[in-house]
Design a protein around this nucleic acid. Sequence first.
DNA 1: TTGAAAGTTCTCAAAAAGTTCACTATCCTA
DNA 2: TAGGATAGTGAACTTTTTGAGAACTTTCAA
Lengths: 198, 198
Amino acid sequence: MLTTQQKRVLDFIRAFIHRHGHSPSLREIGEGIDIQSRGAVHRHVQTLIDRGVLKRTRSGWRTLELVKTDETSPSLPLLGKIAAGRPIEAIPGHDEINIAEMLLGEERYVLQIQGDSMIEAGILDGDLVVIQHADTANDGDIVVALIDDQEATLKRLFHLSGRRIKLVAENHKLSPLIYPADRVRIQGVLTGQLRSYR
Amino acid sequence: MLTTQQKRVLDFIRAFIHRHGHSPSLREIGEGIDIQSRGAVHRHVQTLIDRGVLKRTRSGWRTLELVKTDETSPSLPLLGKIAAGRPIEAIPGHDEINIAEMLLGEERYVLQIQGDSMIEAGILDGDLVVIQHADTANDGDIVVALIDDQEATLKRLFHLSGRRIKLVAENHKLSPLIYPADRVRIQGVLTGQLRSYR
DNA sequence: TTGAAAGTTCTCAAAAAGTTCACTATCCTA
DNA sequence: TAGGATAGTGAACTTTTTGAGAACTTTCAA
């Protein structure tokens, strides 16, 4: 486990390599994280090498390399945006995306989608959705709703006047359902969705 | 079994490591759960180490590590399937889903989608897609293709006779594109997709 | 071959973190 | 109601980490 400074050094090196394609000099690291002494920087780098996070491929200048991180850190490089007919643009500021952080949280769970009722919201048959447990939700949220304590369903929620609730499927073939509020219990709110191809 | 305070300490440490990538100092733990005395925090931490929930990899600063438990791995409970008009059915055999395992892998990266060209495949503007680096792909795969070494685009791929390649957008407003094979270079294959609502 | 740039090694002092301890308070149970 | 388990405070102490700066060696390219 790294100390704060060690981590700063590592983060700087990672970002530098990503931007410049080669590793920084000790002086550049020092300037980047505000340390005057090359000796101090060197000590940090050496520690990182000892810890196995960095390595020097050969002796020489700018020969630092990141050691491939193990799978315990659930993140992937975020390269940029892609669109039809355009080159990939880098996203400034982000270079790593932590998948766990995006989707995990207290009181969340996963459901697998069956059927096409939310297809126009980009949620397909077989997709997994992450639900945050909740009793209430805002208009427009997609929720897991329990009707008459019997049928659970994933729908977009709207409150109507007269204590009624409208549940809308995202599929133009299905009509919205309207219930008195006391027949509908909200179980959770959609917070994420994922799909695996293969 | 842990006491209330011990659990608070453990939860704090877990959250801290998750956010910062390294363990907190005793002072930071104290600030986090509102204990002034470093000594008291130390006693809690020591107890947790004795219980085997935490360990110190070596002597030094910020060297706390969570001992691997079920809670350490980035997973969520998989409750079951949900459909319009049906109760949630439990999925037999699965009770945990490991998000990291589903999406991570060697030579993968993430792109953010811009535009609606894949909307009918359930890939919306702003979604993140996980791409597996690859030079080749099968018919029907969704790929990142580079056309004339200039334009990167996400499309469904088909090989045609006469060394031609058809790239199909999943949007009926856009027509398929057909290129000679030597103008198209495949950079990767779509292996996952995720979206975060909030 | 030479000199600038980069990396290495060292010592010193200070700051930050971890450890131990005595004292006290609160709650629960026998 | 006594005693134990759990807690918090604050002080003193030890250990680890840190940055500065200087002197040294190595690398690289003109």
